[in-house]
Amino acid sequence: MSAVIQTKNNTKQQAALHDPTWVRTGLIAIALGFIVLFLCLPLGLVLFEAFSKGWTAYWSALTQPDTQAALKLTLLTALVTVPLNTVFGIAAAWAITRFEFKGKSLLTTLIDLPFSVSPVISGVIFVLLFGAQGVFGEWLMAHDVKIIFATPGIILATLFVTFPFVARQLIPLMQEMGNEEEEAALSLGASGWKTFFQITLPNIKWALLYGVLLCNARAMGEFGAVSVVSGHIRGMTNTLPLHVEVSYNDYDVVGAFAGASILAGLAIVTLVLKSLLEWKQSDR
């Protein structure tokens, strides 16, 4: 008798805890449909268009000098901005989580600024500062320093846009960890550098890698800010995303989609690495 009551109770409890089947399947269908429609379909289309005229057309589109130059510029930009922003990000996270100072909350807000400002505006800021009619324009002209419509401008704009990634990843983690382990290392006689490399860095390494990865993806993919400062000079100041746009506007479909396929490939590699890192982190 009591067993019967219990099973009855169990089914009741299950009914109370679980949504009806149609709600579950409905939600899953919507989520999957969205992903297929807005992610998989465009990605497939990019590859389809890139190879629409066969392997050789694809390959020659990739190996033509303008594409090569764009690829090199993109890599150079990432190579400069990612290490710099890694160092800046660690420094900012360290300052915010380890020290008490006036204007700390302001600094925390300002770190997010590049995320909240439209990338186009970020680009315009640099034009206003370093452009021919800009604040430093005359001085730069007089000293023959080219920033806008040249590689330095592209690097500066990318630096600005990708600044928050590393710091954003580290601040919550370092806040949660506290600084007791570092204090312990210092009390045991370790120097500041030894404490950083032997205690802090191992503790933040996964989050740091994750931040660097996101920073890199954005540095290579940034369009808005770079578009404003670059000037779109073919073979000179076109990064890969800009090259895609220029090619597309010239009705060079294969060229545009071949460039896009590289960026898409980068996105997929980033995603895979990101999930690997997340899995590694949760494993610990």
Binding site: E180, E181, E183, A184, A185, L186, S187, L188, G189, A190, S191, Q198, I199, P202, N203
Partner: peptide, 27 residues
């Protein structure tokens, strides 16, 4: 603090989480 020759035991121990017990003590 590193020159004072003190030993400090923290309330929540502050053991180095990425090191073994041996490496902690050897640090």
């Amino acid at each position: 603090v590193r020159n004072r020759g003190i030993g400090f035991v923290f309330q929540h121990y502050a053991l180095f989480r990425h090191m073994t017990v041996f490496d902690n003590v050897a640090f």
